[in-house]
């Protein structure tokens, strides 16, 4: 039960932050990516603000054996740079730049994003369902070592 309470608190903070920061406004997101136009730095402030509590949390996590509710904490970060990390991130970035929406804000603006948002979300969910098959193909071209 407690896991659900804290999952809701975490999701709530995430949704509140995305809404209040302006990150569900596609103009502000595309404005951040528009280095050759009227550059909008808001996203950098959001990212900076978010990394602060998160960096503290990682420091606390390092000193702990397990999470407060008893489950395991994530292991150390992998440093493996592979084709799917780069190819996937480039694909994601292209889609992100195209319309100014990424997965978090898509969900956060569900209640006020209007009907057009559903086209994006439907395609995103479809893409997520296809991803394991795409990864298989990619591994055949560029075998993971």
């Amino acid at each position: 039960m407690q896991r659900f309470v804290f999952a809701f608190i975490a999701g709530g903070l995430f949704g509140a932050g995305l809404f209040l920061s302006g990150m569900t406004d596609t103009d502000k997101v595309q404005g951040f990516l528009d280095f050759f136009g009227a550059w909008d730095p808001t996203l950098a402030f959001v990212m900076g603000g978010a990394m602060l509590p998160m960096a503290i949390a990682w420091r606390i996590a390092k000193r702990r054996e397990s999470a407060v509710l008893g489950n395991a904490l994530p292991g150390p970060a992998s440093a493996r740079i592979d084709g799917s990390l780069i190819a996937g991130s480039v694909m994601f970035g292209a889609g992100w730049g195209l319309v100014g929406i990424c997965p978090g804000p898509a969900i956060a603006s569900l209640s006020y994003g209007g009907p057009m948002l559903f086209f994006f979300i439907a395609a995103m969910l479809g893409g997520m369902a296809l991803a394991p098959k795409v990864r298989e193909r990619l591994d055949k071209w560029v075998p993971a070592e």
Binding site: R3, I9, L20, M54, I56, A57, I60, A67, L73
Partner: peptide
């Protein structure tokens, strides 16, 4: 607003990590 919202996002991530381990 960006900075304030960002702090909330980071606090959400901190709660999910430290309490749920995710």
């Amino acid at each position: 607003w960006g900075l304030f919202g960002g702090l909330l996002i980071g606090m959400g991530g901190a709660v999910f990590l430290l309490f749920n381990g995710r």
